[in-house]
Design a protein around this nucleic acid. Structure first.
Lengths: 233, 233
DNA sequence: CGGAGGCTTGATGTAGTTCAATCTCCGTGG
DNA sequence: CCACGGAGATTGAACTACATCAAGCCTCCG
């Protein structure tokens, strides 16, 4: 990794200061080429709850997530919703190479993105050697994660699901033994394929067993991670 | 698409005759470049039930599926299994860029593959412009499919799952109103996150309702696809 | 203080699992 | 040729995990 490639001196200032500069797709771009990407991108803030992409709409935009957490949701004709992905800083947002969005993307907490028109982005990616390779690696990683998730949805019981979810969130967002969940009980249910009541009961059970504490709000303290891991399987 | 690119005259004979020549990743290779790929590939036959890749083993091989159907399985520590993917002719088999296989790959029926060492394949793909882009498109397609599947696993009831599965299989393998399922009831359960008994009961119910017929073995006739689609949602 | 949104708790219902027995279809061998 | 055996499929009965329906309960903010 040559130092010059990421030398802030010649990258567009907004990119040089970007928190996701080295973890997003942009990492495959040297500062020189970054200018092309910069030219077609713009910053966008999302408030918690705001929708970025509606399933069914034309797939017009992609983005790099700079800060915040987004959910990717699939919905039934009859309204049952399943969260099929969570996006964290550095993740790529949106669907390439399709005309119609299949998934709704919503901010779970206030978020910050670097937004691109899909039409403009695709040729830039194709022209930049290595960019599609990088996206391929990411996509394969996301696929592996989705499949792990499928095993959970199809085969595991509520206690295992909740324990696994808490450990997962802690791995991504935890500080010490604490996690501040970026979502309410309802959305946790949408992630795990459970109802809000079942999630709530499982959390209470874990608290009663002394494995977690619920200091209030969306905060969780994982008091016995080993035991949680044992439950998660 | 220039005619010369796929001129059988200068492709390696095995590739020129390959049933998957134009649907697999090979389609991104002109005949000239195909020779490099051909050089590192070898044919392999799999009997129904044979395992190609064991989860946990070093990820040594990838392949193009030429004929047959494979299942991709994830397993719990305690043995519960979930099929997370089905592979059909033209599909890419195996995991790139990882050292350890996360999924077991098994032939559901007799299958025919074009096998590559992963170590040898990766550089060839990187060198061939467009190959990684093609794989990216495929990977994104597979991801979208996995997410559709997640919605099914998390949110749908047994009757909807079975109806949707039958329509899906018919779309891929059907001739007229018939499908010959490439798997038994047990594996259908592993796909849908159900037990073998529940699958069997649902099938009997559909038969009783006159929506399907079960002529025997793994054959199914879809007598009322509109009604099935209505159940599938 | 009051009211709304999200969370918890309880009571009841039910879809799907589990356990177990029987059946069907085929291939094998007497 | 038919009897036997085995694997997969079906069917039944009982159970249980989770959903559903329905109150109540915090807690944050106007």
């Amino acid at each position: 990794m040559p130092i010059a490639a990421n030398d802030p001196g010649c990258a567009p200032p907004r990119c040089a200061a970007c928190a996701a500069r080295d973890t997003s797709v942009c990492a495959s771009f040297a500062d020189r080429e970054l200018t092309a990407l910069h030219g077609i991108g713009r910053r966008r803030m999302l408030k918690a709850g705001q929708v970025l992409i509606w399933a069914g709409d034309p797939a017009a935009v992609c983005a790099n997530l700079v800060s915040g957490v987004l959910k990717v949701v699939r919905e039934d004709p009859d309204g049952r919703a399943q969260i099929v992905g969570l996006l964290f800083p550095g993740d790529f947002v949106g669907e390439l190479f399709v005309e119609q969005a299949r998934e709704t993307v919503v901010a779970l907490v206030d978020a910050d993105l670097c937004l691109y028109s899909r039409r403009a982005l695709e040729p830039v990616l194709a022209a930049q050697p290595g960019a599609e390779g990088l996206l391929l690696r990411r996509a394969l990683g996301t696929l592996a994660e989705a499949r792990r998730w499928m095993l959970m949805l199809g085969r595991r019981h509520a206690p295992e699901k909740v324990a696994a979810f808490l450990l997962d969130m802690h791995r991504r967002l935890g500080v010490g033994d604490r996690v501040d969940l970026p979502m309410g009980r309802g959305a946790v249910g949408e992630v795990l394929g459970l109802t809000i009541e079942t999630v709530s009961r499982q959390m209470t059970a874990l608290k009663a067993a002394g494995l977690i504490a619920l200091p209030g709000g969306r905060q969780v303290r994982l008091l016995d991670r080993a035991a949680l891991a044992r439950i998660a399987g």
